[in-house]
């Protein structure tokens, strides 16, 4: 698969982000559309809370655009729960054709990529892409009970409580999706579920180096290179892998997992992770930078670790995927 240049750039006409209290307390806290003080969003279970976050994120994105759900042709949604229930239950109130996606933490970019292609193909004119993750639902499904006491590994990351929604369209105002590069699944043998940054970095480096090779461009030709949730650990690995591929990315490369929390004050070890991490940082921070003219172009790379608690228990190593979208002002 080679780099796809859209016939006509697809516009990101609206976006919204909903987060929990730790994300609100972070450096980007003021940029999010809504935050909840106890991470429950008025619900009785964490799973319901995450579904509610998706509903709120899409509602806010629709309201900002000034449309109701009839204006949207399809919604692509995903999360980290078994069978993507946060998405299906959360988006139940909307009368929009629904497609559930699973790309682990790469789902935010997977949704943007697929939506852009379908709009470019002409069958759809407006598609919403919504993803979420919740720290408590992820802890329950992937790690330990919430009140279980343990020391966390230095490479471990903190699953972001957040939902992000973007609405893509064949016209209108907003940042433009210009180029796309779908990722290949990649497994370089990391099998520690507390070290996902290292497990995902090879997929991200593969996608990014292919992009540069095929387009004949260099890291300096783009405003920012942003990965989804490699965290501080994955950032180091990514820089080294890109160096081995012959590219120096240190000048303009960053990762959403490094931006969302204040590492000095918060005990988050290697940074943030989860579908919500790249989704809310892109929807609140980077889209604003693009739309307000502080950033010309960016490569957004969604990174996903494709393991389940079952494969981890069976000792399999962790495959990963990374999708790339070039978004310009």
């Amino acid at each position: 698969m080679s780099v796809i240049t859209l016939k006509k750039p697809v516009r990101i006409i609206s976006s919204a982000s909903v987060v929990g209290r730790h994300e609100h307390a972070g450096p980007l806290g003021g940029l999010f559309d809504f935050w909840d003080a106890d991470d429950a969003f008025g619900m009785d279970t964490w799973e319901h809370a995450e579904a509610e976050m998706q509903r709120m994120a899409l509602t806010f994105a629709l309201n900002k655009y000034g449309a109701d759900d009839r204006a949207i042709d399809a919604v692509f949604a995903g999360d980290l729960m078994n069978q993507c229930t946060s998405s299906s239950y959360g988006l139940l109130p909307f009368d929009i054709p629904y497609f559930g996606l699973y790309g682990a933490c790469s789902t935010a970019v997977e949704g943007i990529l697929l939506a852009s292609l379908l709009i470019d193909g002409g069958h759809f004119s407006r598609i919403a892409s919504v993803v979420s993750s919740h720290n408590c639902t992820a802890e329950r499904q992937y790690r330990t009970p919430i009140e279980y006491g343990s020391l966390r590994a230095q490479t471990s990351q903190w699953t972001v409580t957040g939902a992000g929604a973007v609405i893509l369209a064949d016209g209108g105002d907003g940042a433009k999706v210009e180029k796309l590069l779908p990722g290949r699944t990649f497994d370089l043998g990391i099998n520690d579920p507390a070290d996902m940054g290292a497990a995902m970095a090879p997929a991200a480096a593969d996608t990014l180096s292919r992009y540069f090779r095929e387009t004949g461009t260099l890291p300096r030709d783009v405003g920012k290179i942003v990965t989804g949730d490699l965290g501080f650990r994955g950032y180091e690995m990514m820089v080294e892998l890109m160096h081995r591929e012959g590219y120096d990315v240190t000048n303009n490369y960053t990762d959403c997992g490094m931006l969302i929390y204040n590492r000095e004050k918060a005990d988050v070890h290697s940074g943030g992770s989860g579908c919500g991490c790249s989704a809310v940082v892109f929807a609140s921070h980077f889209l604003r930078e693009l739309n307000e003219g502080r950033l010309d172009s960016m490569l957004l790379i969604g990174t996903g670790a494709l393991m389940s608690p079952l494969t981890v228990a069976q000792g399999d190593s962790i495959p990963a995927v990374a999708h790339l979208a070039k978004v310009v002002r």
């Binding site: 990649f186 370089l188 043998g189 990391i190 290292a198 480096a205 180096s209 081995r244 591929e245």
Partner: peptide
């Protein structure tokens, strides 16, 4: 990708 599985495991470790 130029880095092999063995090289990467060592690098990560």
């Amino acid at each position: 990708m130029k880095t092999t599985k063995e090289e990467y495991k060592k690098l990560a470790k």
